[in-house]
Amino acid sequence: MSEETYDWVRLLQENRDDVLARWTEIVRGSLAGRMSATESSHDLREVLDALLAGQGSTDVRSPSYDGLRSLLAELSRTRARQGFTPTETAVSVFALKEAVLGLLQASGDLRGYRAFADLSGLVDELGLFMVETYSATRETVIAEQAESLLELSTPVVKLWDGIVALPLVGTLDSARTQVVMEALLQALVDTGSEHAIIDITGVAAVDTQVAQHLLKTVQAARLLGAECIISGIRPQIAQTVVALGIEFGDIQTKANLSDAMLLALRRSGLDVVKSGRGRG
């Protein structure tokens, strides 16, 4: 234990209720009604108790602050998910300094300033810790949103009775390719279609991984009794695929979606003919 007769732990212990009241007031003001008074005062009381449990250590990572760190991490994650800014998040601990300063000014207690300086450094570290946790959580939130976008961006469209199409767009990474291919197989089952067109006009590059996913999908579709046509292979993709040594075997490919559509129609026993009524 510290030899200091008057450290910040004692300062906070002796003025616990006063500090808590001031602290809650400042935090509540900064969050402008987005947090109820009881909610924040409950949180802050827990934080204060966990801070005092550290017995004056100034090392944020010390085991005596395990409880404090998990409380602050939880608080930061909640704020991040609720859409608060990093400042609004870290203010919860930074405001403790303002509360204690206010208290010292009111009481004119000079001994307290030395103790305050020690506390101040620790609080800064805690604030940074909250910001770190906050950012990590925001990144997770963004990743989750990206993942759901991924699912949204895999529209399997029904072109005709028994014909579905999957237009692939953008960069196909492993996760996305997996998702779109599964969506196609599911659509084949759901619609009972026997023809699928995978259009890759919008795909930037086809590497072995994408090709392998394509080939596996075509094989799986065959097991479901459906034939796939790959359309929209642009010249630069064709050259690259050939140089890589990828062979599409007996899989039908067409330059564009409309040719593929025509082939699928023919395979279904339909044909497109001019009506004679149109302009010659």
Binding site: A205, Q209, Q236, Q239
Partner: peptide
Amino acid sequence: VDQTKLVTATSELAR
């Protein structure tokens, strides 16, 4: 064509 070839080679080697 060369962009696509280089990007594809990058994709292979990075993976």
